[in-house]
Design a protein around this nucleic acid. Structure first.
Lengths: 229, 229
DNA sequence: ATGGTTACCTTACATTGTAAGGATGGTGGT
DNA sequence: ACCACCATCCTTACAATGTAAGGTAACCAT
């Protein structure tokens, strides 16, 4: 009875926040206009007074998360100068990863966007600034940005990420087939046998654990350091 | 009039080939059951006698491209032993990239799949075999695979790839805003000014040119070589 | 010929995004 | 106080999509 009375008017921010929450809870697949409106206690068409189309909704959602990353990373200018470029970028990328682990559907959505979130430019500008400050040439800084790929956003690869929908990644390989696989894929099975994963490691996508993320990151940082002018 | 007479029966392979061709021609967005059926001179529901659902269609399409890569890469066992591991992987990944340039919609689709294409296991097994043969430990081989990310498939990053839909990537930044951007993003604009791209460089996604692909590849290969046992 | 299997078609429905326009309640001008 | 206005939200409706259910026609071994 009081539920209707406390309903405050919608706004772009409230819609986007609800969209992020919905995607976090049930995946981006569940993020439909009708469902989102229902979560907000409203009808679907009402959303269109705050957003022009669903594409804009998704753009806004991505932008929201990027802003979250940018805030978590750029907000703390703690002791700007007493850390070298590698330490700084490492800290930033790992902070981004913490955000991503709370929004595991973002990589997939990010890949489908047609326009680049505006906030991302500012974030990238900071990274380039760090590189230039460390003595990188424009050319090397440019290539470093490419080499980083999606690392600045906190994830390494999004191929086969079962984030967006259910899918346990285990049950598609039956026990019986495993023996048959062993001689068709000798090297892979040997490697997996040696390198069985701690599934406790928080995972983003296909086997993208904290350990592998940091390994890749340090491999690139170390390689770039050696190329630095 | 004779068009109907020459119509040979459908098959999973014919459907998948037509799907790949359609995606190549008009993007994965145009790949609907009705449209695909029309291209095959058939009604939509007829496709379901060869594929159980659209998800299976997409899985099959991805699998087809992976098979194409595997064939282009694994088929030529030319002089298996007289090239070192770096040369071999470099050649393979670059060959994969040639395939990808013909199917620029694959990265986006690949990221959305829930199941891993079966052919990919075989391809990856070969890569692991190369690493192990070069003296890599299982652990280092494992991490190398993670570090490679999507490089074995011929692309570096798929963030903001405008492949799936139209979008010229230039026209969203008006000339007027460019001056305003310059002081908001000093480092980025300086870098872009120095590093203006040859747009002639075949591009896969956001600024992922051949040069950057090879740079990232060599950075990783060189870094791994130094870690090799 | 005949019963059955296979390949394709027709129809229909649920779900999605969204166009078009209606109701309603608060606000500022007079 | 009144009234025109406008932002906000709702109702209805439509097109496009994936696909369930069942129909039809050609072929094939018996």
């Amino acid at each position: 009875m009081a539920a209707k009375a406390v309903r405050q008017p919608l706004s772009r921010e409230r819609v986007l926040a609800a969209a992020v929450a919905l995607a976090d809870a049930e995946g981006v697949k569940a993020l439909t206009m009708r469902r989102l409106a229902a979560d907000l206690g409203v009808e679907a068409m009402s959303l269109y007074h705050h957003l022009p189309a669903k594409e804009a909704l998704l753009d806004g959602v991505v932008e929201t998360v990027v802003a979250e990353i940018h805030a978590a990373v750029g907000g703390n200018a703690t002791s700007d100068r007493d850390e070298d470029w590698q330490t700084r970028l490492r800290r930033q990328f790992l902070a981004a990863r913490q955000i991503m682990l709370r929004h595991p559907w973002v990589p997939g959505l990010l890949g489908s966007r047609r326009t680049i979130p505006v906030g991302l430019y500012a974030y990238y500008d900071g990274i380039v600034g760090t590189l230039l400050g460390a003595g990188f040439s424009h050319r090397l800084a440019h290539r470093a940005m490419h080499a980083f790929g999606s690392l600045p956003l906190g994830f390494a690869q999004e191929i086969f990420s079962p984030s967006s929908a259910g899918g346990s990644m285990e049950d598609d390989v039956a026990e019986a087939d495993l023996a048959a696989m062993a001689d068709a894929l000798p090297h892979l099975t040997a490697m997996v046998a040696t390198e069985i994963h701690d599934v406790t490691d928080p995972t983003l996508g296909w086997c993208d654990g904290q350990t592998e993320f940091e390994f890749t990151l340090d491999l690139l940082l170390g390689g770039l350091e050696r190329l630095r002018a």
